[in-house]
């Protein structure tokens, strides 16, 4: 009898294990696909880059399928230290980082300006948001033409001011200029600023939209109360509105830092790092030494990637820590 009874005793707890742990298992089931891909495409490549950066490798396998990589320890990092291109890239990355921060106050400015009741406001908001919607590649192309000294806006204005139309030796129309039009993208001094200006355009729109949504949540009663107490202008903005926009500011700073550090598309489209490498940033330099036509130095490229990752890690860990603290605070 006991033999027959046994299943009826043990089965309920067995079925119940899933049931009892349903709440803790369910999130993992939903997370599993994302985790799998995150591991495959983000975590593993990070470790592979770390590993590859210790080798000298041109990316080729021999006829039998064995890698031709040679272990050289930290030599790639030693080379980076003396590499003038790497230094230029690092300096340019810092330049991007500092100048990109302009997007935050400028975005706020436009958001405040657009945050008013007026017929057709949605259209204006959409127009201001527009640059963020179009691809970075397109923005880069447009700005590349814009700066072009021959047919761009810059060149056309210059021609109107400083050049006169003449007929050349073979009888075609040409321009004679008292000084040649500025060639922003091929001047080693100004090219990086030119690209950053192009990059700021969509970034300002991004910050603006973050602040616009933030402004929707500003408590009207606090504004009212502040107004009754006589606050207005800068004081109102600084002591009443901005503190309430803190979450929006935080996100705006995060996306701006990350956007500045991973800048790649604009440089690839507008200058390919040129003239002679003066607009390189780490992300593009990594591509240039490892993957581009004249690259084939995968180990060295990985070392650049690791340095970029380390810089990003500083910011990302700070942001994650902040978010963690905030979550703890709200609980």
């Amino acid at each position: 009898m006991a033999v027959i009874d046994a299943p009826s005793i043990t089965t309920p707890p067995q079925a119940g294990w899933l049931k009892r742990n349903k709440l803790s298992i369910a999130p993992w089931i939903f997370l599993a696909p994302a985790l799998a891909f995150f591991t495959l495409y983000v975590v593993m490549p990070i470790f592979e880059s770390l590993y590859l950066s210790l080798f000298e490798w041109n990316g080729l396998y021999d006829a039998d399928g064995n890698s031709t990589a040679v272990y050289i320890g930290l030599e790639n990092y030693a080379k980076l230290w003396d590499d003038p291109n790497f230094r230029t890239s690092l300096v340019n990355n810092l330049l991007w980082l500092f100048l990109f921060f302009l997007a935050v106050p400028l975005g706020l400015l436009i958001a405040l300006f657009l945050n008013q009741e007026m017929p057709g406001m949605r259209i204006y908001k959409s127009l201001f948001f527009f640059p963020f919607v179009i691809s970075q590649v397109v923005v880069g192309l447009i700005f590349g033409w814009f700066y072009n000294p021959d047919f761009g806006v810059v060149g056309t204005i210059w021609k109107a001011l400083f050049c006169e139309e003449t007929v050349n030796f073979v009888g075609n129309v040409t321009f004679k200029c008292s000084s040649p039009p500025p060639d922003i993208l091929s001047s080693p001094e100004f090219a990086t600023y030119g690209i950053i200006a192009a990059g700021l355009w969509p970034q300002i729109a991004y910050c603006m939209i973050l602040y616009l949504t933030g402004l929707n949540n500003v408590a009207a009663d606090q504004i009212e109360a502040a107004r009754l107490d006589g606050a207005k202008g800068w004081k109102m903005l600084w002591y009443v509105v901005l503190p309430q926009l803190r979450p929006a500011t935080f996100i705006a700073v995060v996306v701006t830092v990350i956007g500045a550090l991973r800048s790649f598309d604009m440089i690839a489209i507008m200058t390919q790092g040129g003239p002679f490498g003066s607009t390189n940033v780490l992300a593009y330099y990594m591509y240039e030494v490892a993957i581009s036509e004249y690259g084939e130095r995968y180990g060295y490229g990985s070392a650049v990637a690791v340095v970029l990752f380390a810089i990003m890690l500083v910011f990302i860990s700070y942001f994650l820590w902040r978010m963690y603290q905030d979550e703890k605070g709200t609980r």
Partner: peptide, 8 residues
């Protein structure tokens, strides 16, 4: 050489 050759 022509001006602006680095951007062409």
């Amino acid at each position: 050489f022509v001006d602006n050759h680095a951007s062409m």
